[in-house]
Structure formats: structure tokens, C-alpha cells
Amino acid sequence: MNEHWHCIGCGVEIQTTDSDKIGYTPQAAFEKGLANEELYCQRCFRLRHYNEIQDVALTDNDFLQLLNEIGKTDALIVNVVDIFDFNGSLIPGLHRFVGDNPIIMVGNKVDVLPKSLKKPKMIQWMKERAFEQGLRPIEVLLTSAKKSQDIAQLLTIIEQYRKGRDVYIVGVTNVGKSTLINQIIKQATGVKELITTSRFPGTTLDKIEIPLDDGAVMIDTPGIIHRHQMAHYLGKKDLKLVAPQKEIKPKTYQLQPRQTLFFGGIARFDFIQGEKSSFTVYLANELLIHRTKLDNADSFYQKHVGELLQPPTTEELADFPELVRFEFSIKERSDLVFAGLGWITITKPGVIAGWAPKGVSVEIRKALI
């Protein structure tokens, strides 16, 4: 493709090489579009023909510009987070930009958490964590876009607080925001004609405007890249092992001090000091866990990473960052969180350490469970 061709839907430059980047269209579709003089990027094509929204990612500068725009409008903000990766899917500094606009916080992917968890308790926990980040959501609810759970309730709440205003839906990449919006469109059109889906005016590179029946719009914004998530350091094959696709089955380990757990080769937990205790691990079921002595842990990792300790696979080991250590002194029941991977619940006081690829955040929070 020597010439520059642009999508007639959003104006982005068409490219046929990278399906994860803006402007992608398959080569065959590109040639067909040229012949028919109707050249769309894949995102606009799916939107036009199937009413399906595909997420795109923003750069930091684009994101700041978008946030400043939201702050100047009178709108309702719907902030979608991944309840399994709550810490890793919060938007840094969101509270500084939304101004006086009300926020609804939606915890998506509730289907991957154990069914034994009580929703009211989780919602209260989300409110407390949001307050710590400076956010004051007027409503917090849980959904599963993948399983269409509680979408009708979300629509009712949006209508309750919208009061004729536009609605901005924001979230970092990988929270399932596009799936959620597709469910909203699907359910709303079937239930009460809330959204007109036959056309999407104002479909631009940075956002998609979905008309509401009173003249306002629901605005889907691109996913914001949160660079501290594990997903940005793994290939597609490895990502399938660490991103839960179904309900996770917690695993509990009785550990003595000076014992270590490896989570594949991508993270590590050290129990350094304290009395013998139980530690419950909340990770994707497919990720293998290995226990060893802390004194041997470094050599064990060097010997087995990429083979016994996968992911990363041997092919991806060369590009995989080194593991970085974070030490914490625990005073109360807490979670040690690896952004984008999961967490470990620590029940008794002690000293522990978490290791993750350089760039991935590791932190302590009040226990979710």
C-alpha cells in the first residue's frame, strides 16, 4: 500500500498489516472496498453492518485531550472497571478531570469471581476503594457483559441519572467496555427503543456517538492504555492463560515462613516472616503454581523459567522483562495484587514480597474477600 487511503466512516488512514492498531482492514476487504468505492476500516465495517463496537486504544496525549473535553461538558460519566483487575483498571487521575459530572462505576466481569461472593459486600468494597482514589460515584454496580448480566439494571440507572444529558463511557483497555456497549445496544433496542442503532452519526477516530431517542448521545470513548497491566507484557497465547475466561477456583496454600510460590514464570510470592498461615490465591485456573523454598527460589527460577515455569514460553522469554521485587509488612487481612493477573489474600500479620515483570504494579489493598 504505497498510496494513503482513508476510512469513509471515521477518516483514519487504512492499513492492512496490524489487526491490533487503528485503521486495520484485511487485505481482501481492502481490495473489495477499493473496487466498490466504499472503503471502511474493520472497526467501522463491523459497526455499520453488525452494530458491533470494537475498542481502540488512546495515547496519553489523546487521553488527556479527551478527559479535558469531558470535564467541560455537562454529562453523565460511566466508568467501566474490571472487577477481577480492579486496581489495574482504574483510570489514573480521573477524579481531577470529570469536574462536577456524576459518575456511575460499573464493575464488569463479575462472572469470573467465585459465585460464593456476596454482591452487596463487593459493591461496598468498590465504593471504599473508589473513595481512596478520590472518586465519589453516585452509583456502583456489578455486571457481566459477556453473560448479559444486569445490563437492564445498568440501563435503568443510566436513565435515572442522565436527565437528558449525554453519557460518556470510559475505561482502560481490556475491561470489556466494547462488549458492554454492544450488550447495551442489543438489549436497549429490543426492550424499549432507547438507542437508535440504524445509524451512528459522528463516528470519528476518537469516539463513537450512539444516538439516544431524546437527541442526546451515548459516547463510547477509546480504551485508555494502563501500562502497569500484565497484558502489555505477554503475547496472545500466554494472555489466554492468565486472563480468566470462566469462574476462578481459589487455591489455598498452608505456608511456613521462607517458602515461595511461583505463578508460571510471570510472578512470584515470598512468605518471608510470620507464623505458619494459609494464603488463598485468586488467579486464572489454567495458570500453574509451583511451591519451593525461598532460599532456592532464585536458582529455581533461572533454571526453569520458560519451561516448567510457563508462561512466558521459551519463544517469548527473550522479550520478557525481569521480575522486580516489592516487599510489604502486613498488619491486617489484605490482598497482594498483581495488576492484570490476580491477587493473594493474606490472613495474618507478617512480612511478604511480590515479584512481577518490570513495569507491572504490585500493591497491597484491603481484602476483597
Rank of each mutant, 00 (worst) to 15 (best):
Q149E: 05
I158Q: 02
K121D: 08
W125N: 06
E193S: 15
F131I: 01
T196C: 10
L205A: 15
R199W: 13
I158N: 02
K121N: 04
Q183R: 14
I158M: 15
E132Y: 03
K118R: 05
I185A: 12
N182P: 10
K118V: 04
P201K: 13
L117H: 09
Y161P: 09
P114W: 06
S198C: 12
A145H: 06
L135V: 04
A145E: 04
K146L: 03
S144Y: 00
V172S: 12
F131K: 03
K147F: 00
I208E: 01
A152C: 02
P120N: 12
K121C: 00
Y161A: 11
F131V: 01
V112P: 01
K207I: 06
E159S: 13
L205H: 09
A188D: 15
T143S: 06
M218H: 10
V167N: 04
Q149D: 07
T203D: 04
K192M: 13
Y168H: 15
D150E: 03
I151G: 13
S198P: 02
K163F: 06
I219G: 00
L154T: 10
G107M: 01
K109F: 01
T156Q: 11
K192P: 03
V172I: 12
I181T: 04
K163E: 12
R129C: 00
G190C: 07
E132C: 03
T143W: 00
D150W: 01
N182F: 03
G202V: 13
A145T: 06
I185F: 05
E193I: 11
A188E: 15
T204Q: 07
A130C: 10
A188Q: 14
I169Y: 00
K121Y: 05
